[in-house]
Amino acid sequence: MSVDIHKDIARRLYEEVVTEGRAELLDTFVAEESTDGPRAAWASGRQGFRDHLEGLRKSLPDVRATVTDLVAEDDRVVVFWRIQGTHQGELWGVPATGRTIDATSVSLITFHDNQIVNYSVLPDRLTILSQLGAVAA
């Protein structure tokens, strides 16, 4: 079933691509003409996704993304995940602090032909920025 394939790709996106840094898997997982939801946090396309991943790994070189739950139907997967790491490079305009982050995020991933064509992520920015000392708790 394609739903099971989509859930497997979504899980592997976080466990293997984000956590392990296996960017080569993006060639298989992400469509060349993919988009980043309505926010446009990264440039569209597979290369934009690759650039976003590289920036994240520069900000948090020891990043760990743990999938805590997946909900899927038809061509969509909602991923509930936890992000952890040490802030070693600029993140959302905040210079490196050396502090650790531990927060949750929710992503909506849309597939076509078993590849990601749209990716929208809603990180808990307030928690992360608080942990970095950028905003008052």
Results as ranks from 00 to 15, higher is better:
1 M>H: 06
2 S>N: 12
2 S>T: 10
5 I>H: 10
6 H>F: 04
6 H>M: 03
11 R>W: 08
13 L>I: 11
13 L>F: 14
15 E>N: 04
16 E>S: 14
18 V>T: 11
20 E>W: 10
20 E>H: 11
24 E>R: 09
24 E>W: 01
27 D>L: 02
29 F>D: 02
32 E>K: 13
34 S>M: 14
34 S>V: 07
37 G>D: 12
37 G>E: 05
39 R>V: 11
40 A>M: 13
41 A>V: 15
44 S>W: 01
44 S>V: 03
45 G>Q: 05
45 G>F: 01
46 R>G: 06
47 Q>I: 02
48 G>N: 05
50 R>C: 13
50 R>E: 12
51 D>Y: 02
51 D>I: 11
52 H>L: 13
54 E>P: 08
56 L>D: 02
58 K>T: 13
58 K>G: 05
59 S>I: 06
59 S>R: 07
60 L>C: 05
60 L>Y: 06
65 A>C: 11
70 L>V: 13
72 A>D: 01
75 D>S: 14
75 D>Q: 09
76 R>I: 14
76 R>Y: 12
78 V>P: 05
78 V>W: 09
79 V>S: 05
79 V>N: 03
81 W>Q: 13
81 W>Y: 09
81 W>F: 03
83 I>K: 02
84 Q>P: 01
85 G>S: 05
90 E>H: 03
91 L>E: 00
92 W>N: 06
95 P>K: 06
102 D>E: 01
103 A>W: 03
104 T>R: 02
104 T>P: 01
107 S>C: 05
107 S>H: 00
109 I>A: 06
109 I>T: 00
112 H>D: 11
116 I>S: 01
119 Y>A: 07
120 S>M: 05
121 V>T: 13
126 L>T: 15
127 T>I: 12
128 I>P: 06
129 L>F: 15
131 Q>H: 14
